[in-house]
Amino acid sequence: MSTPRREPEDVIGPEDRLMELLAGRALGDLTAGEASELERLLAATPAASADLDDFERAVGATTHALLAARGLQPMPADVKARVGARLQAHVASEAARAGSPARRIERGSSRSQVGWWLAAAALVLAVVGWWPRLVAQRGDVEPADWIVAQWSPGPDPLGASVSGEVRWSNATQSGRMTFTGLAPNDPKQAQYQLWVFDKAQSEATPVDGGVFDVDSSGSVTIPIDAKLKVDSPYLFAITVEKPGGVVVSSRERLALVAPVKA
């Protein structure tokens, strides 16, 4: 590697030399000898580490300015949809694993609303006498191990104004989803499909939770039809797929996600 050529008047002091090396570091053009020299200078001047950040930002600003000045290349719509869906799924998955504070706040807020609606619904059912009959007809009671997660919108606009929750029982391998505001679909064109991300499965191959349709824009409840055993779900996701659903989703149209609280 070559070192920068110096003009006769270019006799520089240690501070200028430090700046020059920091510039070279940000540009990625330091020789091994220069890298060692920079390390020594930084050890003697620790505050100069902040200058490296300035140079890195200068590289970012210059690259952006030069690209923007000639016009940026639009990201193709299909690429944008795919990377957005993948990122959304990844983030929801990570948040569910980590139980991030931001997600907990969102869920707490949504849960209080859902709790109010559930309480109101329970009261109505009790008054009209349906509740005991409903339980008797089903021949069981609500599972004690309900896992409850709230829906959040994904990148696809169909999920933009949706609220609701998903409930799942590992013990009974059954569950249901409720939605308010999920757009009706034309089953001949597309269907919604549920995916259950289970800790026992790779993130690339979530469990197929079945396809379903929505024929009214009000509140709907959909039973979950998991095709495989689900032991420890950490994320539920709704995609929009071709009629009949798919075996592996491209996640291009991710409408909703529901991370499970860790």
Partner: peptide, 25 residues
């Protein structure tokens, strides 16, 4: 940073072309 679920789409709407231009390079 606050995990706003709508921020992903906004990020792509605003900076998608920039990211694509850099990546294509």
């Amino acid at each position: 940073a606050r995990s706003d679920p709508r921020a992903t789409q906004d990020l792509l709407d605003r900076y998608g072309s920039l990211l694509w231009s850099i990546a294509r390079r």
